[in-house]
């Protein structure tokens, strides 16, 4: 229940590419073929383990509709990771990636880890965007890339977890300032080594105050 870090994620991309379905598959391990249109933003959370540490992912699943953009942009700030999703069976969703990427880079911190996701990989027969194209786009813009299927759950875990690994590495390298919440990372409640709660938590406060 307690976690070492909390990472804030955003999921962005055109409407209907399967953002909410990816989230549902990741948090609830189920698939819902018909999903209500997301209004503004919805949320999901799940605990994962990286390097033996418990990490809580707090995921903000944004509405893909163009008309919601001005609202959803407000939510980008303070995200440590972003899943940028397109639909491999719809070329237009791939073509819009540049706009999404510019938007994301402009409204969030520069260190945000972005994972490019080509969703609906189960619909191979209807594929319009080759995997190589996705890979090339990711390489060009410095993103991580994966093809997933929210329906079959293929690569869904990996997409969320690999993003977290990348963030975690950046923390280890000191790229992220974990004390700045604008980076989308929060340190979990500190565990006191002493038995009694009061001196312990107060010790934590002192340590926190000392570094400022």
């Amino acid at each position: 229940m307690a976690y070492a870090y909390l990472f804030k994620y955003i999921i962005i991309g055109d409407t209907g590419v399967g953002k909410s379905c990816l989230l549902l598959q990741f948090t609830d391990k189920r698939f819902q073929p018909v999903h209500d249109l997301t209004i503004g933003v919805e949320f999901g959370a799940r605990m994962i383990t990286i390097d033996g540490k418990q990490i809580k992912l707090q995921i903000w699943d944004t509405a893909g509709q163009e008309s919601f953009r001005s609202i959803t942009r407000s939510y980008y700030r303070g995200a440590a990771g972003a899943l940028l999703v397109y639909d491999i069976t719809r070329r237009d969703t791939f073509n819009h990636l540049t706009t999404w990427l510019e938007d994301a880079r402009q409204h969030s911190n520069s260190n945000m880890v972005i994972m490019l996701i080509g969703n609906k990989s189960d619909l191979e027969s209807r594929r319009e965007v080759k995997k190589e194209e996705g890979e090339a786009f990711a390489r060009e813009h410095g993103l991580i890339f994966m093809e997933t299927s929210a329906k079959t759950a293929s690569n869904v875990e990996e997409a969320f977890i690999n993003t977290a690994k990348e963030i975690y590495e950046k923390i280890q390298e000191g790229v992220f300032d974990i004390n700045n919440e604008a980076n989308g990372i929060k340190i979990g409640p500190q565990h006191p080594t002493t038995n009694s709660t009061l001196p312990g938590s107060q010790g934590g406060q002192q340590a926190g105050g000392g570094c400022c």
Partner: peptide, 10 residues
């Protein structure tokens, strides 16, 4: 909430 989480662990 964090305080509660801590307490729960303890």
């Amino acid at each position: 909430k964090e305080r509660e989480e801590l307490q729960t662990v303890e």
